[in-house]
Amino acid sequence: MFDSVAPGRVPGRVPGRTAAPASTTPGGRRDPSALAALDDLARRIRPTAASGTRLLPVHPALAPLLPEPGLRRGSAITVTAAPGLEGTLAVAMALVATASTGGSWCAVVGIADLGAVAVDGIGVDLERLAIVPRPGPHWAEAVAELVDGVDVVVVHPPFAPRPAAARRLVARARERQSVLVIVPGRAGWPEPPDVRLTVESSHWEGIERGAGHLRRRRLLVTGGGRRAAGRMRRCELWLPGEDAGPGVAGVAGVAGVAGVAGVAGVAGTSGASEPA
């Protein structure tokens, strides 16, 4: 753009509207061979995007909900629930757990009352978990800083996020190759995420009218999103499972078969017991 703007402070060598010169002829139209050269150049000056590190590992119980078998760096994931249901925070923490035990730093922003025993039970490594309990009006700034050095940031915005602020956070996470897991408040989240997880139903087991105690919870979760993530996926999980974090209750068509539930212990991380 801007070739023909008269008064620029800088002489002549302004390219067409695409910045990289090789790709543009003076009129601003693309030359395919130059584009190829540009792609080649981009590959050489971008050493990091090595394929193996694009995905952070995710617990096998949750993998069926995602378009890829892991958390794609630079992506934004929202976790919401049908009206009146809990479970979003548990799903968010379960998403983080395997990356965390694999060496990734994680942060939780905006959850003032986070119960560390449960988080540990879900399988998150507390040694690499930073809790920003009450960021107040600075929540977006805090998240913007965190995505710079923390692989996964779980955020529960304490205020209704302005669309521009939300867009900037998503863009920054993409740029810094960090995963943003958003647990929206009542005001929701104004930006369409890459992946959208929704808790559709929730049922606690082990507790009756005056007997037993909470043992495990069966969650029906659906996953959708943009582009490749657009196809709707369904999955039943134990979250928390008995004696561990998440477990597979059933996948897609198998849903509804309580018997599959026994897989609970799949969690396999060093977790003790809890969750939620």
């Binding site: 730093w105 986070l114 560390a116 988080v119 540990d120 507390l126 040694e127 690499r128 978990l129 930073a130 809790i131 920003v132 309990p133 009450r134 960021p135 107040g136 600075h138 700034e141 805090a142 800083e145 965190l146 710079d148 050095g149 923390v150």
Partner: peptide
Amino acid sequence: RAAQVLTRVQGLLGPDGVLTA
């Protein structure tokens, strides 16, 4: 890297702004 950004967030919110459990 995490230490760097956590220090910055503490600069923004105060030492109690970033906790570990």
